[in-house]
Design a protein around this nucleic acid. Structure first.
Lengths: 254, 254
DNA sequence: CGCGCCCTTGAGAGTAGTCAAGCTTTGTGG
DNA sequence: CCACAAAGCTTGACTACTCTCAAGGGCGCG
């Protein structure tokens, strides 16, 4: 566990933009707003602010690699990140997306495991990170941070269990619908029935999140697009009829 | 959040055996050995010991119910627990098993979520539990406990992601093999090539863990049993050829 | 003895994966 | 500004894995 301060070594991040010195003002302001620090002692938040390494990441750049030992805790300041796991046989899935304010790369941090997937910038990002030792110190100063992390890891786990059940028991179409609803909940903006997903999604991404093939996902989305249920514009999905999607997700039509 | 001490109300546990007063000696000794307390301050462990509610649970008894608010943290003293999630459509899966020394019911604890499944005693159990407030106090006294919980939740999450990938990309047979290997790792005893799984498993359990139907699981296990790869005796699985199973799991034969 | 639970096995059908081809859009370099 | 290449999307036809439906056997327990 090297480096303690702001002398950011190029340990994990390729493609960091050096035009950002390390502590952008806008970025540090939003550390308050992060899940993991909500309700923490002001001193701990200040410490988090001053020890954070903040980096600007270009789209599709890798933040950490599958199989590498987990040495840092990450959180999204702006943009979004997707975690992609590849199997030995070439099979790929998207484990999850991390949106603004969410942490990622925590699951393997305190148990000696290796990262279960590549973390890739789904769009241009600012990413904050802390070394394991720094995070431990922060938790020591304010255990509330650990509680928050337990809460969000738990949420991921519950969600993952839902996904497992859907994969095991539901039709492709239902799973794709669920996938969109989940993403709309996590990173959507708009009203009750119209919602736009702020993460760029190719067909392939939808497929790998829903656990199906590009072809099947494309067929379903094209069909829904045809009947006005949703629309795609430059890899951004807009849902025009949430109730109908919900009905499909619940197996309403067959 | 009611009750604070040892006046155990029948809040969650049905079928508790009243012949156990509350603090068995053997049970409290093994609190030391639990993951969640490993490395914690002795005072915190003592506090954990003195505040734990310990209950004896009969096989197939429900410890908490899917959809109920999470109010307590649980850990297995002896026996094993399975967490079963049921969908609105009747589809069921086994989210995970908790074996000796492992905690469960934590995922929904600090985020206001509800339990994602029923917790059922897979065999006669002794279960320790603490209220949310008690656990918070323990963590305050020794943040190491929170770190341990983050570690084990993280491990569950990594495992769940692996399961998702397997469900999305692999054949039934491979998934069943993976399931057995995972269980052998978690609750197995024996050597390199011969291993017995100490959790009782019906065909149905294997199916719901691997994400397939009773029938498909039965066919695969019967075939493997026929060629001496494994054996079943009274719902207990013994694997006789781990390398061969591993080969199947990796798609070795097709 | 009969009922319930668990396991096995067979036959048929359908969802979704695989293979294949062509279209649209985007970006790059001449 | 156009040509070409690369990436992404759509669609069709075929195949097969696995689910569904169905029936029957073994075992323990009331």
């Amino acid at each position: 566990m090297p480096q303690t301060g702001t002398q950011a070594g190029p340990l994990v991040v390729a493609g960091a933009d050096p035009s950002v010195p390390g502590h952008g003002e806008a970025a540090t302001a939003s550390i308050h707003a992060m899940h993991m620090f909500s309700g923490a002692a002001p001193a701990a938040i200040e410490a988090a602010r001053s020890t954070a390494r903040i980096e600007r990441i270009a789209r599709d750049t890798r933040i950490f690699a599958q199989g590498s030992p987990a040495r840092r805790a990450f959180a999204v300041v702006t943009g979004s990140v997707r975690i992609v796991q590849s199997g030995a046989d070439g099979g790929q899935i998207i484990c999850c997306f991390a949106a603004r304010g969410e942490s990622f790369g925590i699951a393997a941090l305190f148990n000696g495991e290796r990262q279960s997937g590549d973390a890739l910038a789904a769009q241009p990002c600012e990413i904050a990170s802390w070394s394991q030792a720094q995070l431990l110190a922060l938790i020591e100063a304010s255990p509330r941070i650990a509680i928050n992390l337990i809460g969000s890891l738990g949420q991921c786990l519950l969600e993952s269990h839902n996904r497992v059940r859907e994969l095991a028991t539901q039709r492709c179409e239902q799973r794709i619908a669920h996938t969109l609803l989940r993403l709309a909940g996590q990173a959507g903006c708009g009203g009750e029935s119209h919602r736009a997903i702020s993460i760029p999604l190719r067909r392939r991404d939808v497929a790998e999140t829903a656990g199906t093939t590009l072809h099947t996902a494309s067929r379903a989305l094209a069909a829904w697009e045809k009947c006005g249920l949703l629309a795609t514009r430059e890899q951004h999905l807009m849902i025009h009829d949430m109730p109908a999607l919900t009905r499909i997700a619940h197996g309403g039509d067959n």
